[in-house]
């Protein structure tokens, strides 16, 4: 692949054409927080945590869906970006009911880790305290909408990797919800294959195995990334 030159955070880099800004940063130890991104899944730029500043562009661009251009000058750690990342994190916590102390994912949660990472000491926005359902109708798994941040990893892994299309999205704005089939209880879904990939990629305590308990729950998003990589190598 042909290579181009870019400058990221004052580092001059030679990168392959067609690479995303996020991939370049990760390959060069430049830390950018993400929630909706997962290696192996198609990026959708939903969480907005990975926004970067590109000189010559007035808008902030999501690094997971932005491909590097020749001679671009990119900034990933400005005060403005750090401010927005913390604000976005606070909005995640304010939108639904994330109570880490009693959450099944406590200690094994990407959202919790993100809170520490961006230095979130408090939430400055009023909590919405939405009345969200817990769907425990499935024989193996639980879907807790209280903990969902709409990263849509579950939707993408189910359609793109498993090919089952069990998960979809309903409504817009703060009423948006992940749904099984045409909004049926997960246990009544006719498309779910019980594979558990959605549970493994979920970054929070929204999807979990019924055998799991607080402190012992482990998720394996990397397993899905590895699976996709192996399939690509085979093909």
């Amino acid at each position: 692949m042909p290579k181009i030159s870019v400058k990221i955070d004052d580092k001059d880099l030679e990168v392959e054409v067609g690479t995303t800004v996020l991939d370049v940063c990760r390959a060069n130890d430049i830390d950018i927080p993400t929630m909706c991104h997962l290696k192996g899944l198609v990026d959708v730029g939903a969480c907005r945590l990975c926004l970067v500043e590109v000189e010559g562009t007035s808008k902030l661009l999501p690094s997971c869906t932005t491909k590097v251009q020749a001679n671009q000058v990119i900034h990933t750690q400005t005060d403005k970006l750090k401010k927005y990342r913390r604000m976005i994190t606070e909005l995640f916590f304010a939108e639904r009911n994330h109570v880490c102390s009693v959450c099944i994912a406590n200690g094994n949660c990407e959202l919790q880790d993100l809170g520490y990472k961006v230095g979130m000491e408090n939430v400055r926005f009023p909590y919405l305290f939405q009345n969200c359902e817990v769907d425990s109708s499935h024989s193996k798994f639980v879907m807790d909408h209280n903990r969902c941040i709409m990263c849509t990893r579950c939707v993408r892994v189910c359609s793109d990797v498993e090919g089952a299309h069990n998960w979809g999205i309903m409504n817009r704005g703060y009423q948006v919800r992940i749904i099984a089939d045409f909004n049926v209880p997960w246990g009544d879904s006719t498309t779910c294959t019980y594979c558990g990939k959605c549970v493994d990629v979920c970054p929070t305590g929204a999807l979990w195995n019924k055998d799991a308990t607080q402190g012992s729950m482990q998720k394996y998003p990397q397993a899905v990334s590895d699976l996709v990589e192996k399939r690509e190598m085979k093909s």
């Binding site: 102390s101 817990v134 425990s136 308990t213």
Partner: peptide, 14 residues
């Protein structure tokens, strides 16, 4: 009310 029962040993100590 509405929580899955196995969550209770983690919720009620609080």
């Amino acid at each position: 009310e509405g929580r899955y029962f196995t969550e209770m040993p983690a919720i009620t100590p609080r």
